[in-house]
Nucleic acid binder design. Structure first.
Lengths: 146, 146
DNA sequence: CTCGATCGTTGGCGGGGCCAACAAGTGGGT
DNA sequence: ACCCACTTGTTGGCCCCGCCAACGATCGAG
């Protein structure tokens, strides 16, 4: 195990690795989204809407893992761009009902492609089988951490 | 391939997965470091110093992937805690020479353990072989992206 | 009707990554 | 010896992300 070969200079071990890889991933994703004037929150929210249908902002936050306050800002931005519609809930005056517009759905599809390319770029040096294995492991880890 | 089984509700695919996993990793690492009153930058800088020895702040930034301005703040914090020493370079009046103190080295070892535990927690659901494979893949990805 | 919970909204905090500008200093070319 | 391009440390700022506190309005159970 080379206890003499590279004594103290192997500071760059697994914990370090982890941080570096996640940083890379974050960077690639953010760049890709930034190039189409979007942010991670936009995708979270649109994806949640597309998957579960219209919902109140609080529900949206819970679905997408966003804070209520961040949902406000994100819905504002998406509504400004016409990707999302916010209207009061007739049955509960506290709530707003947020729904996707056709344009919003198209935008989500676009973001899907863009993110797919980012991931393709990130995982470029891995074979198809390796990527599959990596994705599987990440799924396991995610499920484990709820 | 189940084109009818789960049509549009599989929004949570690989690109999404990626972000979630990196977020989890980031969270665990930040929590672990925060518990000992440290931040990622501290580890970056101490690790770079431990690995390559004393250096100017600009060099430190290049080694650890930190911006020069962030190096300033981080060295300030580490110096306040006595983990690092900053003295002028006699050979180049522009430069400071930053070096680790014994206390700093001990702190780095501590951070190593803490981060190791964080990683252990993150990868808990994976077998030893799987972790090895995961680490290998991440290394490949990192090397590919320079 | 009252009380606790929920909702949308505003405002704030800290980490993280990055960039621009600046004065001081350095080194190469001529 | 002089100029010029470059480097260095430092300050200050920007945006994203994740989170938390507080508020007035509203709802629902008792």
């Amino acid at each position: 195990m080379e206890t003499s070969g590279a004594p103290r200079r192997l500071r760059g071990t697994a914990s370090w690795l982890l941080g570096q890889a996640t940083t890379q991933a974050h960077r690639l994703v953010s760049e890709a989204l930034g190039a189409v004037d979007a942010r991670r929150y936009h995708y979270s929210l649109l994806a949640a809407l597309d998957e579960f249908g219209p919902a109140s902002q609080a529900d949206l936050g819970r679905r997408g893992g966003l804070d209520r306050s961040d949902v406000v800002a994100t819905v504002n931005e998406l509504a400004d761009k016409g990707f999302v519609e916010r209207r009061p809930d007739p049955g509960d005056k506290r709530r707003n009902i947020v729904s996707v517009t056709p344009s919003g759905t198209a935008h989500l599809r676009h973001l899907d492609r863009v993110l797919g390319q980012a991931q393709e770029a990130l995982l470029a040096p891995l074979s198809a089988a390796e990527r599959e294995e990596l994705v599987r492991m990440l799924n396991v880890v995610l499920e484990h951490h709820g």
